[in-house]
């Protein structure tokens, strides 16, 4: 079962900005090799943080607005939000242990 759902420009407000829980969004595109590597790790983290953090992914090919707003120029980029505010950005592929550490730091911020 997947705990990571798709978010789009249209659902951004409801899913991310107004979320009660902190949110991690994985910005990706089908042509990006490292994105395909990071996806299964994000899935695993989504299961480990179930009930504590909501996990989403956004296809940057199909959704121009949100990536533009946050100036995303490299993927994979993982953005972490709390109360609708950006608390952390992780650019590029990182091993799982590193992602976990950065996510935990952002949750405390």
């Amino acid at each position: 079962m997947s705990d990571t759902r798709e978010v789009t420009d249209l659902t951004w407000e409801a899913d991310v900005v107004k979320s009660d829980l902190p949110v991690l969004v994985d910005f990706w595109a089908p042509w990006c090799g490292p994105c395909r590597m990071v996806a299964p790790i994000v899935e695993e983290l989504g299961q480990e943080y179930a009930g504590k953090v909501n996990f989403f992914k956004m296809n940057t090919d199909e959704n121009p607005q949100v990536p533009g707003k946050f100036g995303i120029r490299s993927i994979p980029s993982l953005l972490i939000f709390k109360g609708g505010e950006l608390k952390g950005t992780i650019v590029g592929f990182r091993p799982k242990s590193d992602l976990k550490k950065r996510l935990d730091e952002a949750l405390l911020a």
Partner: peptide, 17 residues
């Protein structure tokens, strides 16, 4: 500016430009 226009991978990031 890494990830904000500085890149080391054209195939990863080229489409943003």
């Amino acid at each position: 500016l890494v990830g904000r226009g500085v890149s080391y991978c054209a195939t990863c990031d080229g489409a943003f430009f």
